[in-house]
């Protein structure tokens, strides 16, 4: 396995209260694979990503246990300098909002070249050539000329490609994509996803794709982990998840995302209630309060991870 996350825990310390944002999350990705992480806002998806790169917002958030094994090395045990060698070089990330992800006062050439120079000692002209190559890879037109442009001279879709060029500049093995297409409109989103797939194929890049958009998951991901309240409640190959979701939360998610509409007066399905605050003490299953199939046991004891074969697992008492 390229990346193996085991029992990862991340806590927030705000105003003297401790909240658990990521609560014992485990998953893995291998070369050329895409793992989707889905869940609603606040389920801990982005914090999981930042925990892997060790870029949690300081001083509030901190790692509280678990392992992040990248090719066998536990990233959580590295010092800052060692960790920096992994960022951008082995593991990289693209962010959600292309409008704010680029430094407004530096040219995009500066920003791409900096990413290359961080990890590779090369002559200036060579760095420049690589930067142009990256923009061409991301299909930014007139790449050589646009190195001197500033971010505000690009459209949103083009900016997201520039962010992609920066993230991929040092040919990382793993790319974490945190809702990279959420801020883009549908046609631009489609182009971007195609591009990402092609680059992945050419470079056997591993991708962790964080999203709340199940249509994107169906299109991009080999396997999916569904997160709820800081936990992975179900993980499965993508096809199996869509065909046969086992956790009530996943079922509800699918039903609200891909609704059956029998007639025009039918009400759209939505999951009642809201996820628990991370500062609430935890007893039992975090979804119990909103679950249609809740049983007394759900409120007292956290359900174990139940393997159902072919990499499909869910943590729910219904399956025990």
């Amino acid at each position: 396995m390229m990346l193996e996350v085991r029992d990862l825990k991340t806590q927030f310390l705000i105003g003297g209260r401790t909240g658990t944002a990521v609560d014992g999350v485990s998953f893995s990705v291998d070369e050329g694979q895409t793992l989707g992480i889905v869940g609603e806002s606040g389920s801990g998806k982005s914090i999981t990503a930042l925990s892997i790169l060790r870029l949690l917002p300081r001083p509030f958030a901190r790692n509280a246990g678990g392992e992040v094994l990248f090719r066998g090395v536990d990233l959580l045990k590295l010092n800052d300098k060692q960790m920096r060698r992994y960022r951008g070089h082995h593991i990289s990330m693209v962010l959600q909002d292309p409008m704010t992800a680029l430094n407004p006062v530096l040219t995009i050439g500066d920003q791409i070249e900096e990413a290359i120079r961080m990890h590779r000692k090369l002559p200036r002209a060579e760095v420049r050539r690589l930067a142009i190559e990256m923009l061409e890879l991301l299909r930014v037109p007139a790449a050589a000329r646009r190195l001197a442009s500033y971010p505000h001279e690009f459209s949103g879709g083009m900016r997201q490609r520039v962010v992609g060029a920066i993230a991929l500049a040092c040919q990382p093995e793993l790319l974490i994509a945190d809702e990279p297409t959420t801020a883009l409109d549908a046609t631009v989103q489609d182009q971007y996803l195609r591009l990402l797939k092609r680059i992945q194929r050419d470079r056997s890049l591993a991708i962790i794709f964080i999203t709340h958009d199940l249509a994107v998951v169906a299109r991009m991901c080999d396997r999916v982990a569904v997160m709820y309240a800081g936990r992975v409640v179900e993980r499965a190959p993508t096809a199996a998840l869509f065909a046969q979701a086992r956790h009530p939360y996943t079922q509800a998610l699918l039903r609200s995302a891909l609704p059956e509409i029998p007639d025009r007066n039918a009400r759209l399905y939505s999951i009642e209630g809201a996820p628990p605050s991370i500062f609430q003490p935890r007893h039992g299953c975090p979804f119990a309060a909103r679950c249609e199939h809740v049983m007394p046991r759900c409120r007292e004891e956290a359900p174990p991870d139940i393997e159902m074969g072919q990499g499909h697992a869910a943590s729910c008492w219904l399956l025990a």
Partner: peptide
């Protein structure tokens, strides 16, 4: 900001993040 986050993702040392990316803005 997000662009400071992106600079850190690139592996830019904190010193450069502060004096180059953040201070000029």
């Amino acid at each position: 900001s997000e662009f400071v986050k992106l600079a850190r993702i690139k592996g830019v040392p904190e010193r450069v993040v502060i004096w180059k990316h953040a201070l000029r803005n």
